[in-house]
Protein backbone atom coordinates (compact mmCIF):
# COMPACT_ATOMS: atom_id res chain seq x y z
CA UNK A 1 0.00 0.00 0.00
CA UNK A 2 2.78 2.36 1.00
CA UNK A 3 4.59 1.49 -2.24
CA UNK A 4 1.54 2.46 -4.26
CA UNK A 5 1.26 5.80 -2.45
CA UNK A 6 4.97 6.42 -2.97
CA UNK A 7 4.73 5.52 -6.68
CA UNK A 8 1.78 7.91 -7.11
CA UNK A 9 3.75 10.62 -5.35
CA UNK A 10 6.78 10.05 -7.62
CA UNK A 11 4.53 10.13 -10.72
CA UNK A 12 2.89 13.33 -9.49
CA UNK A 13 6.29 14.95 -8.96
CA UNK A 14 7.58 13.93 -12.39
CA UNK A 15 4.34 15.29 -13.93
CA UNK A 16 4.90 18.56 -12.08
CA UNK A 17 8.55 18.69 -13.19
CA UNK A 18 7.43 18.17 -16.78
CA UNK A 19 4.83 20.98 -16.49
CA UNK A 20 7.29 23.27 -14.69
CA UNK A 21 9.60 23.26 -17.71
CA UNK A 22 7.22 25.77 -19.34
CA UNK A 23 4.96 27.07 -16.57
CA UNK A 24 3.75 30.19 -18.39
CA UNK A 25 2.79 28.25 -21.52
CA UNK A 26 0.87 25.68 -19.48
CA UNK A 27 -1.00 28.34 -17.54
CA UNK A 28 -2.01 29.97 -20.85
CA UNK A 29 -3.18 26.60 -22.19
CA UNK A 30 -5.16 25.77 -19.02
CA UNK A 31 -6.71 29.26 -18.77
CA UNK A 32 -7.29 29.55 -22.53
CA UNK A 33 -8.41 26.63 -24.73
CA UNK A 34 -8.75 24.08 -21.89
CA UNK A 35 -11.02 26.44 -19.89
CA UNK A 36 -13.27 26.97 -22.94
CA UNK A 37 -13.48 23.25 -23.75
CA UNK A 38 -14.18 22.41 -20.10
CA UNK A 39 -16.98 24.95 -19.80
CA UNK A 40 -18.63 23.69 -23.01
CA UNK A 41 -18.28 20.10 -21.78
CA UNK A 42 -19.82 21.14 -18.44
CA UNK A 43 -22.76 22.76 -20.24
CA UNK A 44 -23.22 19.65 -22.38
CA UNK A 45 -22.98 17.14 -19.53
CA UNK A 46 -24.90 18.84 -16.70
CA UNK A 47 -28.36 18.29 -18.33
CA UNK A 48 -27.84 14.55 -17.62
CA UNK A 49 -27.27 14.96 -13.87
CA UNK A 50 -29.22 18.04 -12.80
CA UNK A 51 -32.83 17.52 -11.64
CA UNK A 52 -35.50 18.69 -14.10
CA UNK A 53 -37.45 20.51 -11.36
CA UNK A 54 -41.15 21.39 -11.28
CA UNK A 55 -41.12 23.16 -14.62
CA UNK A 56 -39.23 20.28 -16.26
CA UNK A 57 -36.53 22.54 -17.67
CA UNK A 58 -34.05 23.25 -14.84
CA UNK A 59 -31.57 20.64 -16.14
CA UNK A 60 -31.61 22.30 -19.59
CA UNK A 61 -31.64 25.97 -18.57
CA UNK A 62 -29.29 26.09 -15.55
CA UNK A 63 -26.15 24.85 -17.41
CA UNK A 64 -26.75 27.51 -20.09
CA UNK A 65 -27.32 30.23 -17.46
CA UNK A 66 -24.13 29.34 -15.57
CA UNK A 67 -21.96 28.78 -18.65
CA UNK A 68 -20.32 32.27 -18.47
CA UNK A 69 -19.60 31.83 -14.74
CA UNK A 70 -18.10 28.37 -15.31
CA UNK A 71 -15.93 29.68 -18.13
CA UNK A 72 -14.69 32.63 -16.05
CA UNK A 73 -14.00 30.25 -13.12
CA UNK A 74 -12.03 27.85 -15.32
CA UNK A 75 -9.95 30.81 -16.59
CA UNK A 76 -9.20 32.22 -13.14
CA UNK A 77 -8.36 28.92 -11.36
CA UNK A 78 -5.03 28.27 -13.22
CA UNK A 79 -4.00 31.86 -12.52
CA UNK A 80 -4.72 31.69 -8.79
CA UNK A 81 -3.50 28.16 -8.13
CA UNK A 82 0.22 27.80 -7.48
CA UNK A 83 0.74 24.14 -8.31
CA UNK A 84 0.55 23.26 -11.98
CA UNK A 85 0.12 19.53 -11.39
CA UNK A 86 -2.93 20.24 -9.25
CA UNK A 87 -4.47 22.30 -12.08
CA UNK A 88 -3.61 19.54 -14.58
CA UNK A 89 -5.09 16.89 -12.29
CA UNK A 90 -8.31 18.82 -11.61
CA UNK A 91 -8.84 19.72 -15.27
CA UNK A 92 -7.95 16.22 -16.49
CA UNK A 93 -10.32 14.68 -13.95
CA UNK A 94 -13.15 17.07 -14.82
CA UNK A 95 -12.71 16.40 -18.56
CA UNK A 96 -12.99 12.64 -18.01
CA UNK A 97 -15.96 13.11 -15.67
CA UNK A 98 -17.86 15.38 -18.09
CA UNK A 99 -17.20 13.07 -21.07
CA UNK A 100 -18.36 10.06 -19.04
CA UNK A 101 -21.53 11.90 -18.04
CA UNK A 102 -22.29 12.68 -21.70
CA UNK A 103 -21.57 9.13 -22.86
CA UNK A 104 -23.58 7.47 -20.07
CA UNK A 105 -26.38 10.04 -20.27
CA UNK A 106 -26.56 9.74 -24.07
CA UNK A 107 -27.03 5.96 -23.96
CA UNK A 108 -29.60 5.86 -21.15
Amino acid sequence: MLDLVRQAEIKSRSFETWLQKRPKLWRWIFAGPVALILSILAMASLPFVLPAGRGGINHLVLPVVFFPVLWAGFVIFPVVSHRLNRIGGVYGGLTVLFILMIVIGGFT
Partner: peptide, 14 residues
Amino acid sequence: RLVGTDHSAGSTLA
Protein backbone atom coordinates in the same frame (compact mmCIF):
# COMPACT_ATOMS: atom_id res chain seq x y z
CA ARG B 1 -43.50 31.93 -19.05
CA LEU B 2 -40.29 32.86 -20.85
CA VAL B 3 -39.10 29.26 -20.49
CA GLY B 4 -40.94 26.18 -19.26
CA THR B 5 -44.58 25.84 -18.32
CA ASP B 6 -44.33 26.23 -14.54
CA HIS B 7 -42.40 28.19 -11.90
CA SER B 8 -38.90 26.79 -11.35
CA ALA B 9 -35.39 27.98 -10.50
CA GLY B 10 -34.40 27.77 -14.19
CA SER B 11 -37.39 29.77 -15.46
CA THR B 12 -37.00 32.42 -12.73
CA LEU B 13 -33.28 32.87 -13.45
CA ALA B 14 -33.83 33.06 -17.22
